[in-house]
Amino acid sequence: MPELIAKSAIDAGPVTKGGASLALMEPGPISSIALYAHGAEAGAKGLETLGLSFPAPGQSQENGAARILWTGRDQAFLIGAEAPAMEGAAITDQSDGWAAFSLSGAGVEDVLSRLVAVDVRLSAFAPGQVVRTGLNHMPMILRRASAEAFEIYTFRSMARSAWHELEEVMGQLAARGTLKS
């Protein structure tokens, strides 16, 4: 069997500009878990084996490297762990379809506020909350991972554009910062 080499979505190194840092993430396996009608109970049993449960709208859960993010009505993404065998849900491997970035640092909310039309200020968007919205015009799943860190998931085919948009904004904000003195 040939050895396949996993390549990252784009060849981009970590960047720090102003108060924010952008880096590629290797999130591991990504599976869509879409509950069937009346599948909630069986689905919950499967997720229990990972110490997780199906998240409420706009929420996520974490257990070690595994996390589950609400992504739609009766749909969630399991990230960082192989999907367990489970009844009650359609499980689709999405690992190769997404690019993941981490955006962190004190300036993170200023960067996001230029590209995201939803209120994700640190005061309005608690750690663990998830929002599915646009990063400028690109579809995105955004999760606040900790106090000053966000995870950004976009379509792998749009990874270069997403990176460019974020880096551009970080540069603009850094430039503004130098004018303030």
């Binding site: 509950l35 599948g39 909630a40 199906f54 409420a56 709208p57 706009g58 009505r73 009766d74």
Partner: peptide, 15 residues
Amino acid sequence: ELVAGPAAGGKGASE
């Protein structure tokens, strides 16, 4: 309102 009706797994709406 949701055309599809309430969800089975997730509880209510987000806050």
